[in-house]
């Protein structure tokens, strides 16, 4: 049995006048330590799927089974949503405070590792977008989740900070050997960061295809992966697949 099994998920959003089918026939599984990516057009239900996996919404039908009796899920939302009335330090320790866990060294260590120790007493507004994303990641990692869900964490960043942060996240996750799911619009990012890429259709979102990333790319940090000789062919394959399914708006 895999770490997580997603089986026949289907989800409708209802309101008084109508309903929207956001997802249908979603089935896949993730092994422990695996990093997978979802690519798909805007509005196809990727965020919805993450919310379902995180347990924030109950799917209309279908089941998700976990190998472990209980898993701690860390979910980094599409925007950072740091609390403006809390300092960076307080933001990161929030999860620990709520779980009544001893903060001890955790926050300090995370900040040091994220090279942001000097920001501990500052407020989120005083940080740049990239720094805030890193803090949001630190907040998610502080409670030591076994599964990490990342919803377009780099989409609001300039190209340079994005590459920088991709490397950083990839190394951090490897080091903590986390299982992770990344949602992105960037084919390059998906290839550079993950072990497997799932391609979604237009709404109602369903998995059209999956691509396994070759080991040569996987073993490199994202920045180098983008320059590896194996990168272009797989990029082309996914790109062609995207075009064949009628959406060219994906970068």
């Amino acid at each position: 049995m895999a770490f997580i099994d997603v089986c026949n998920i289907q989800h409708h959003f209802f309101n008084d006048h109508s309903y929207t089918t956001a997802l249908k026939d979603i089935s896949f599984s993730i092994n422990e330590g695996e990093f997978i990516s979802f690519i798909g057009p805007s509005g196809c239900g990727k965020s919805t799927l993450l919310s379902i996996i995180a347990g924030l919404i109950e799917p209309t039908s279908g089941v998700i089974t976990h190998e472990a009796p209980s898993i701690d899920i860390g979910y980094m939302l599409q925007q950072d949503f740091l609390f403006p009335w809390k300092t960076i330090e307080e933001n990161i320790s929030l999860g620990l405070t709520i779980l009544n866990k001893d903060e001890g060294q955790i926050v300090e260590d995370l900040l040091k590792q994220f090279r942001l120790s000097h920001t501990a007493k500052l407020y989120p507004q005083q940080l740049s977008g990239g720094m805030r994303q890193r803090i949001a990641l630190a907040r998610t990692l502080a409670v030591n989740p076994t599964l990490l869900l990342l919803d377009e964490p780099f989409s609001a960043l300039d190209f340079h900070s994005k590459l920088d942060l991709e490397n950083f996240v990839s190394e951090t996750l490897k080091q903590f050997s986390k299982t992770a799911i990344l949602v992105t619009h960037d084919i390059g990012e998906a290839i550079a960061m993950s072990d497997k890429v799932y391609l979604f259709s237009n709404r109602p979102g369903t998995i059209l295809k999956s691509f396994t990333i070759p080991d040569e790319i996987r073993n490199l940090v994202p920045f180098d992966a983008r320059n590896a000789p194996e990168y272009q062919p797989i990029f082309q394959t996914i790109w062609k697949e995207l075009e064949a399914n009628g959406y060219g708006n994906v970068t």
């Binding site: 995180a54 924030l56 899920i73 860390g74 979910y75 939302l77 925007q79 949503f81 609390f83 809390k86 929030l94 999860g95 405070t97 709520i98 779980l99 409670v143």
Partner: peptide, 19 residues
């Protein structure tokens, strides 16, 4: 979304209110 963050940490209603 702030509430969602709290829900992800399994925060109680009182904790959500306070924080």
């Amino acid at each position: 979304n702030y509430l969602k963050v709290m829900q992800l940490f399994n925060a109680s209603k009182a904790q959500t209110f306070k924080h």
